[in-house]
């Protein structure tokens, strides 16, 4: 939790909140209850949230307010959940999406 901003010259001390445990890609982490999944992971130093379905490139948060869907993860088995606007809960099991087994990358060049 090294990335937390504990004291702030204008906003003051960080609000005391309940710490809970959750899992991301089979590893256990701690975060504040009800904060966004993305915030909890970033506070733990985790930036890579998924890999692109086609090329497998790593992705993390981009817009952080639900517009870009780059931070989508599977939460308790449900896919396509935006980490940036989903509140963290005790015992959540979060999984990254990854590269899909079949590629469609070549269709463009063959088509032209």
């Amino acid at each position: 939790m090294k990335q937390r901003i504990i004291d702030h010259p204008v906003l003051g001390k960080i609000e005391e909140r309940k710490l809970i445990t959750f899992r991301f890609n089979n590893k256990e982490y701690r975060g504040f209850e009800q904060e966004s999944i993305a915030a909890a992971l970033l506070a733990n130093g985790v930036r890579t949230l998924r890999h692109h379905e086609e090329n497998g490139t790593p992705r993390g948060i981009y817009c952080n307010i639900g517009h870009c869907y780059e931070c989508r993860v599977a939460v308790n088995g449900i896919q396509g959940v935006r980490a940036c606007l989903t509140p963290l809960q005790e015992g959540m099991v979060i999984e990254s999406g990854g590269r899909l087994p079949t590629t469609v990358r070549d269709w463009r060049s063959e088509d032209e």
Binding site: H67, E70, G80
Partner: peptide, 13 residues
């Protein structure tokens, strides 16, 4: 022609 804007975010970005 390119699929740009046709992905998950619906072209918002």
């Amino acid at each position: 022609r390119t699929r740009a804007g046709m992905g998950y975010c619906g072209g918002r970005t």
